[in-house]
């Protein structure tokens, strides 16, 4: 099997998780899927660079993180979410309440600096270990844990998560 076929088949299996990561990074669904499209194209174009002994998900997630950073740079500003006010107009049955909570989480995440948002997306949303996130981001593990701690504090302050 050609490496491009292996990558393509791996990407098919990975697509739901890649979309979840992109949603956590980019916020809006349409922006997130634009990001996924760029990631898929880059991964296919670079499939010869992937080595089968490397985990495909980490390789693809690194492409996603870099593509997202490229996009942030290109826009020169943080992305803004819209729609919470629309959501507020709808009847608050169970699913709408859940939808509003999801928007609150996305909004809180969007307020974090990119350094913090990507750590939250990789560790808390995608479930990567500290070591895996550090390798992917090319920073020391201590940097991952300190960013994560500050991101947690900011999210808890914004979301008022109580227990």
């Amino acid at each position: 099997m050609h490496s491009s076929d292996a990558v393509r088949e791996g990407l098919i299996a990975l697509l739901p998780r890649l979309r979840r990561l992109a949603r956590a990074l980019a916020g809006q669904a349409a922006d997130a899927d634009d990001l996924v499209q760029v990631v898929l194209e880059r991964a296919l174009a670079r499939s010869a660079q992937w080595r089968p002994d490397a985990a495909l998900d980490k390789w693809v997630f690194a492409i996603a993180r870099n593509a997202w950073r490229d996009e942030l740079r290109a826009r020169g500003r943080a992305q803004h979410l819209f729609a919470p006010e629309e959501a507020g107009d709808t009847v608050a049955d169970g699913s709408e309440t859940r939808h509003v909570r999801q928007l609150e989480v996305a909004e809180a995440l969007a307020m974090l600096p990119p350094d913090h948002r990507e750590v939250v997306a990789l560790v808390l949303v995608e479930g990567l270990s500290y070591d895996e996130a550090a390798a992917l981001l090319d920073v020391p593990v201590g940097t991952v844990t300190s960013r994560l701690a500050r991101a947690r504090a900011a999210l808890q302050a914004h979301l008022g998560s109580d227990a």
Binding site: R20, R23, A24, R98, R101, Q102, V105, A106, L109, V120, L124, V125, R152, L155, Q156, L159, S161, D162, A163
Partner: peptide
């Protein structure tokens, strides 16, 4: 901290 993790998972 666990509640925050659950909120994030519920959202994504």
């Amino acid at each position: 901290a666990r509640a925050l993790g659950a909120q994030l998972r519920d959202a994504f």
